[in-house]
Amino acid sequence: MREGTKIHFARQLRREMTTAERYLWTRLRRRQLSGCRFRRQHPLGPYIADFVCIEKMLVIEIDGSQHGEPGTDARRDAWLRHQGFKVIRCWNHDVVDRTDQVLASIAEALATPRPAG
């Protein structure tokens, strides 16, 4: 996907966030979690991450039923990890129904130092 097209698509995704994405965004925005700044629907290489904290190199992906093909997600996760990102995947229903546990997992990942390299 061309860079300009990807940016346009990311903007469209920001306008059309899923219920779970909107719900999590209200808890991540404005440095509410561990004082870290998150971006939503942010282009990273050939992909668009649901949420990313650049400072902590953490990507959060919110998965629904469309993520039934593990090969696609595995390639994406491998590429992101190769770039130095940690990747957390959460199911839509967990974000809505188990918000505190999801936020605790994210906070733990933010607190975990990245390996030197």
Rank of each mutant, 00 (worst) to 15 (best):
R30H: 13
C53E: 01
R14V: 12
F85A: 07
F51A: 06
E16R: 15
E16F: 05
L58K: 00
T72M: 14
P70D: 11
S34Q: 12
Y47F: 15
L58N: 00
A104W: 07
A111L: 10
L28D: 00
L110H: 09
D63S: 12
L58D: 01
D50Y: 04
W79R: 04
I60N: 01
V59R: 05
R75E: 15
W79I: 09
C90V: 14
V102Q: 01
A116C: 15
R40Y: 05
D50K: 04
G68H: 14
H82Y: 12
L80F: 05
R31N: 14
F9I: 12
C53I: 04
R2N: 13
I60M: 08
E108P: 03
C90G: 08
H93E: 11
R27P: 03
E61Q: 11
C90A: 13
H82P: 00
F9S: 07
S65E: 14
R15I: 12
L80K: 02
C53M: 09
W25G: 01
Q32Y: 06
T5W: 02
I7W: 07
T5P: 01
F9T: 13
R81A: 13
R81P: 00
G68Q: 15
R11D: 05
V102R: 00
S65T: 13
V95I: 15
A20D: 02
R31A: 14
G35I: 04
L28F: 07
R29S: 14
Q83F: 08
R76Y: 02
M1I: 15
L80E: 03
A107M: 07
Q41S: 01
F85Q: 01
R81F: 03
A10V: 04
Y47D: 03
Y47H: 10
F85C: 02
G64Q: 07
P43V: 13
L80V: 13
G4H: 02
R11S: 06
G68E: 09
R22P: 01
R76I: 07
V52H: 03
I62F: 00
Q41H: 06
R30M: 03
R27M: 09
R22H: 08
T19K: 10
R39V: 09
L58W: 00
